[in-house]
Simulated scan of single mutants.
Amino acid sequence: MSTGPNRILDEFAKLMTDAAGAAQGVRREVETAFRAQAERMLNSMDIVQREEFEAVREMAVKAREDNVQLATRVEALEARLAELTGQAAPAAAAKPRAKK
């Protein structure tokens, strides 16, 4: 009867392997359910995704840079026009402050 203890240990090892596999399956299901619930909650709060935020931020930075360039160009054109017409250059309007 030397196969008795080995057989019990083999069955126990098989049982533990099956239990570990079942635990992994449960873990995957819980993770999937948690992610789905978190996604539903975030969607209901109308929160923007990081990619969308970064795209809009880049557009705002570019628009601000374009605005500064255009303001500089307008000032130069006004000065040139004043020079050509012999009038005093208009007082420079308050320059937009650069935001940080």
Rank of each mutant, 00 (worst) to 15 (best):
E54F: 06
R73G: 00
L42T: 06
A23D: 11
A55H: 04
L77S: 03
E29V: 02
T17S: 15
R64N: 04
L15R: 12
A23C: 04
S2A: 15
K95Q: 08
R7I: 07
A22L: 13
P90L: 02
R40L: 04
L84E: 08
A76T: 03
Q37L: 13
V61D: 02
Q24V: 04
M59N: 10
Q37R: 08
D10W: 15
A94K: 11
V61M: 02
N6H: 10
T17P: 00
L15W: 10
T85A: 12
R80S: 12
Q87T: 13
E83N: 09
M16Q: 10
K14D: 14
R50K: 10
I8C: 11
A22D: 13
K62P: 01
S44C: 02
L84S: 06
E75Y: 00
Q49A: 09
A63G: 01
E52N: 05
E11P: 01
L81G: 04
V74L: 07
K14F: 08
T72R: 01
A88V: 05
E65I: 11
A94D: 08
A92Y: 00
E78Q: 10
D66W: 00
A63I: 01
I8H: 11
K100A: 04
I8F: 13
E75F: 02
V56E: 15
R73Q: 05
P90E: 02
R57A: 08
A33G: 01
V68F: 15
A79F: 01
P96S: 03
R57D: 07
A92W: 00
A71T: 10
V74R: 12
A23R: 09
N67S: 10
A20N: 13
K62H: 12
V48L: 12
K100I: 04
E83F: 11
G86E: 06
I47E: 05
K62N: 15
I8N: 09
M16N: 05
P5K: 15
V48K: 14
T85V: 10
P90N: 01
A94M: 06
E83K: 10
A88G: 02
V48R: 14
Q69F: 07
F53P: 01
A20L: 09
T3I: 10
M1R: 13
A94G: 08
I8Q: 13
E11Q: 11
S2V: 15
A79N: 08
I47C: 05
F34T: 14
V26P: 00
N6P: 03
I47G: 00
G21K: 09
M59F: 08
I8T: 14
F34N: 06
M41Y: 07
Q24N: 11
E39K: 11
T17M: 14
A79M: 07
K14H: 07
F12R: 04
A20S: 09
R27K: 11
Q37E: 12
A88H: 05
E51R: 13
K95R: 12
A19S: 09
R80V: 05
F12Q: 05
R50Q: 06
K100P: 00
R7D: 11
P96C: 01
T3N: 14
R73E: 09
R50L: 05
A36F: 03
E58Y: 07
T85N: 06
N6R: 13
V30M: 02
A63K: 04
I47V: 14
P5L: 15
E51G: 12
L81Y: 07
Q37P: 00
K62W: 10
A92D: 06
Q87L: 14
T17L: 15
